[in-house]
Design a binder for these strands. Structure first.
Lengths: 157, 157, 157, 157
DNA sequence: TTTT
DNA sequence: TTTT
């Protein structure tokens, strides 16, 4: 009934832009978020959190984000599952972002401080079908490690 | 650098209270959070999000939460991984809660509207070791589906 | 660049629905949010936080919220100012809500568990003019205590 | 029952460090947070949001924050009131921060990327007395514009 | 493995 | 598979 996530971290790699069969842009990246405490060895660990963005926001992220960039992400946690090639259910957790803020400039050449990068959906017609038994081509990130095709069924709002 | 989650949803089952070898309480449960849109079939889906609480908050959750209860959770996203019995890395994503609010009373017998249920850590000495190669007994939830032992190494703050 | 608020509290009064000159619905109410600690006298105090909602969400809130109802609000902090009748600048702080969740049912007669109550704006064309010097008819809430007219200029997104 | 704010913005001035009579550090500053839309004149406005930090976090903020710095703040909304010199109630709204992240380095001389800047309270004994009738020396920020003394009574957690 |  |  309410599902809100706000993260600040750094990209572990350049973002990946892809398109669904129907032509919708999807960009995926991973944020490294340092934990607020150190472990038993006195070292600070990080959580590596998968982010997905759609449509215009996906294009903007692909254009402006790069590995290492400090970035703020607002969105919701999404948990999906599919049956892997051994017929076992694999669960995938990711943050579907609807607002991304570029906290570092792009190598001196431009300003990114102005202009919000928000999802502009004309809400209401939404659809998102996950959990379709047997179908395995339904997601950006796989906890399994395999690259997987994305489908129009994953379109959020 | 910042990692904040706020959820409101319903417990899919009664919470499970366990103890680490050193006697620290850990309670786990899953929140069903309805998505803010309907899928292609016009149905509202939910995300099933794993929650972990520690220490005093774990005891309180085990005592007062029950299947179906509307509950608010505040915490951080944590991503852990371990090698499963086939030597494959399994990733586990969960929300480590530091504040849980009981939004529904306990069947008329008590009030839960007063009193915050917050993690009371004497911050600073914290430690949390995940990602220890080879060790597989390190987590409350497994995306693999197997029940797994919990370890003191997972203690957050 | 990022401005996010999430509150859970109870309405101090029934919500007030009004309309701007151009016919846009605005609903205002105040949430009492208990503080997470007690004061020197051992008593728990509350913060009384002003909420504003617009358009469809305003209508829904006016229809379904009532004094005392436990309610979750998501939005952004807005700070406005105007010159009062003595020519002094008065500052008004409120939360402009874009998502409101009714956490308690309406006296048994209905269900409120399904259906999100979210602001549905066709983002992009937005406008909001506050801080107009001399003009005093620009806000729902006044820290001054006077009832004030609302204006189309306050329309957010 | 839940009161969470997350902001990213820039300091409008250098932070101000003061001490309560009993020697507790309090730092105040204002964050300019650009609104996510433009007004009727096509200009982007900002909300100027007052922030208060206490104790160790106050010292760290005073040491490392400066006018113009991009900063993330996590905390809760607090609304206080007092009677001004004309006997009128004045309301003050501010964000009491428990986590502040410095998103820009300090002119090249140091690193601020490591090390969380979090409030370290030994929770449980808390107290905070506002709303004391007649007393006017109770707050960092005044919507009235007058500088006001701070008091130990405002100590949160 | 999923809640109302 | 991980960022500074």
């Amino acid at each position: 009934m309410l599902n809100r996530v706000i993260l600040i971290g750094r990209l572990t790699r350049d973002p990946e832009l892809r398109y669904t069969p129907s032509g919708t842009a999807v960009t995926q990246f991973t944020l490294a978020c340092d934990r607020p405490f150190t472990n038993q060895q006195g070292q600070r660990e990080a959580d590596f959190i998968n982010i997905v963005t759609w449509r215009q926001l996906a294009e903007t992220c692909a254009n402006y984000l790069r590995k290492g960039r400090l970035t703020a992400v607002e969105g919701r946690i999404q948990v999906r599952n599919y049956d892997n090639n051994e017929g076992k259910k694999v669960y995938v957790t990711e943050v579907v972002a609807d607002n991304v803020r570029f906290l570092e400039s792009m190598g001196g050449n431009r300003n990114d401080g102005d202009g919000y990068n928000q999802n502009q959906s004309s809400s209401g017609y939404n659809r998102s079908d996950s959990n379709r038994g047997g179908s395995s081509n339904d997601d950006p990130f796989s906890d399994d490690g395999r690259p997987i095709d994305i489908s129009d069924d994953d379109l959020p709002f």
